[in-house]
Design a protein around this nucleic acid. Structure first.
Lengths: 200, 200
DNA sequence: CTACAAATATACCAATTAGTATTTTTATTT
DNA sequence: AAATAAAAATACTAATTGGTATATTTGTAG
């Protein structure tokens, strides 16, 4: 049963995996240590043996949630060759925000951004960096597409990238709070429109 | 010093006005009774004499926050005559989400939607109703504009309305978490584009 | 101005919070 | 298998949580 990871590293990972959805659902303030002990079956002693504080668990959980999504996106991006189709990957991935690769509670970037923006600076920073990295990836695809002659030269990459993110995240918020997934589908149609409009 | 409102009604209003920003900033779980007593200078006895529970205060605060925004929007809408310009009012109002008519913490619909969607059903319902009412107002304007010949007949009112809301709320989220108001400005340009594109 | 009611404050409650020091159990190495 | 190191459980803080019963103050009507 030898594993590469030490017992502590495995427990640490186990805690992250089993509580990532709780933080994403209930928020940082709304998640208590007893939520963590209940979900993991571990005691406070064990959790504090592997993490310095509740905050450190929350930060690790965000990283974990984000990584899962980014990996799924990257994998889908690698399958597409044209810049146009690569952009459409985002429409497809976010078509459903429940289930893999999303944790319980929906998009962790959105949840953390709202949950932490006036409360926890470390979490806020992580959410901000995730948004900026996403924006950068989109801008690179847009610039690539322009350079490749796929997209018009008068495209405003930053505005387009930001608008895509806003539509997707706003759409998730609307669909979730109104309990109506078709709202998101309609909003993603607008993202598609945006992408189609810039084609040469 | 006779006032139309009874002492209790005035105190109730005072509590709502002075704590509406706190709930909007820290969220429902993140706001404690001591936050309320500190901010108001009142004691728990006084607060619980005017409200049944912390939840009731939070619900009243949401109503208060929403009403202020809706009143400001309505006032601006009444000043415009064309459907096109009425739609643009939303772009103008949300150009800055800090300061009047917005409470501390930004847009209460967005904050409550994310904060409460897995935690507090009454708050979630209020946020959902706010979104749906907003959507309806936009759809009515779009349909009105189509009927008046201002907008093309092939416009999809629901998709357009939902996309406008998603862009605005997503834009607020991005601008706030990345601490960059220009992001919202760029995203609102896309809202303008959407509105311009449907003109006849 | 007095009496009464309404509003607010005080003093408390049990439960829960994040966190820690210590002991016990479990892995790992020799 | 024994010794040791690492991990986890136990038992405990002190502070804070939302909420309440009771006392006191304040407003108001006669």
């Amino acid at each position: 049963m030898k594993n590469d990871l030490s017992k502590a590293e495995r427990t640490r990972q186990f805690i992250i995996e089993t509580t990532a959805g709780i933080f994403n659902t209930k928020g940082y303030a709304g998640t208590s240590l007893s939520d963590l002990t209940e979900a993991t079956g571990l005691t406070k002693g064990s959790i504090y043996g592997n993490f310095e504080s509740k905050e450190e668990v929350a930060l690790a959980c965000f990283d974990y949630n984000l990584l899962k999504i980014n990996r799924a996106v990257q994998q889908r991006l690698d399958q597409e060759t044209s810049f146009h189709k690569k952009l459409l990957v985002y429409v497809q991935i976010y078509h459903s925000f429940t289930g893999s690769p999303f944790p319980e509670g929906g998009c962790p970037i959105l949840n953390t951004a709202i949950d932490a923006d006036d409360t926890n600076n470390l979490l806020k920073d992580k959410a901000a960096k995730a948004i900026l990295a996403w924006k950068k990836r989109l801008i690179d695809l847009l610039r690539g597409g322009i350079a490749a002659g796929e997209f018009k030269t008068d495209v405003a990459p930053e505005q387009t990238a930001l608008s895509m993110i806003a539509l997707i995240e706003g759409g998730i918020m609307i669909a979730k709070v109104t309990n109506d997934p078709t709202s998101l589908v309609k909003i993603l149609k607008t993202v598609e429109l945006l992408i189609t409009q810039i084609k040469t």
